[in-house]
Design a protein around this nucleic acid. Sequence first.
DNA 1: GGTCAATTACTGACCAGTCAATTGCTGAGT
DNA 2: ACTCAGCAATTGACTGGTCAGTAATTGACC
Lengths: 162, 162
Amino acid sequence: MDAVTRRGDQAARAANSRLVHDFGLLIKAATRLEQRIDTALRQDCGIGHTMFEVLIRLCRQPGEEVSQRVLADDVTLTSSGITRLVDRMEEAGLVRRVPSPEDRRSVLVEPTDDGRAVFLRAVAVHARVVERYFVTPVARDDYARLTGSLHQIHQALRDGTD
Amino acid sequence: MDAVTRRGDQAARAANSRLVHDFGLLIKAATRLEQRIDTALRQDCGIGHTMFEVLIRLCRQPGEEVSQRVLADDVTLTSSGITRLVDRMEEAGLVRRVPSPEDRRSVLVEPTDDGRAVFLRAVAVHARVVERYFVTPVARDDYARLTGSLHQIHQALRDGTD
DNA sequence: GGTCAATTACTGACCAGTCAATTGCTGAGT
DNA sequence: ACTCAGCAATTGACTGGTCAGTAATTGACC
């Protein structure tokens, strides 16, 4: 058996490994779910999934304004990404930028009343899809463990630096 | 209490709902994990996460060639996305295109020996990150349930058409 | 056997994000 | 009080994807 064949078999073993398979499940489930929600939101509300995530953060407590930096961290975008996203959302009349009174580098963002209205419609669409493809398929008593595990992973990512 | 305030509270309730929070966990965990892997792979192997996923599929059984269509489905890309990705991978010497003998519309893709070598290095990097941020943080006896749930979600997405 | 709808890959135009560099501001150390 | 390292936001150049449209091929049906 020559070196190339041996490498092929080794690669096959790796490609079929448990770890690779399991992790693939996470990635595929998440991306496909996100896509479904994105297209549903676009159809019914005219916004995409990332704008929706921004609105979630902004609506969390009424009257609170959130800096772009915080927003970027929360939505998993770079600061330039957030700049451009907020540009589009401002353009669409969903949010307003207001200069931060206590730090003149910072820009605060708040939802417009229109933004909140869109959010309310969007959240219904979101709930429908999530209910159907995330909650329902999971066995009743596995759901808590699932979210618990995701929480742990989230923590690990937040803490781990390498 | 005026209409705007009422809407604000309603939005806040929605934004803090269990469903929104739980699903957010899935999305954030997945995207951050994918980013970690992507940067690790780029540093150590010069390929990104999507190329890696293609290689996984291509290496699964040695000698097998896979059509771009199948590849696109597997990696969750459109067919034009795959065309361009395979362009870059061919350019980089990781894969080879060969015309399908039984369907002249179709293009088959196979890894080069170089591609397999890169894959073997990449899979080690991948394993390190996945082990650390996906396996370890999850309680020993929750892991099986986690992957089981993900499998169910995956199924639901495959079957559901709306 | 000829027609036609469906399927595969590819392409141009575009979109949504990244990265690297820049500007303006802040706060800690001396 | 002054400097200076670091942070927030923005911008230009780029990357990696989408979408809509096209051409070639296929297979099912009459």
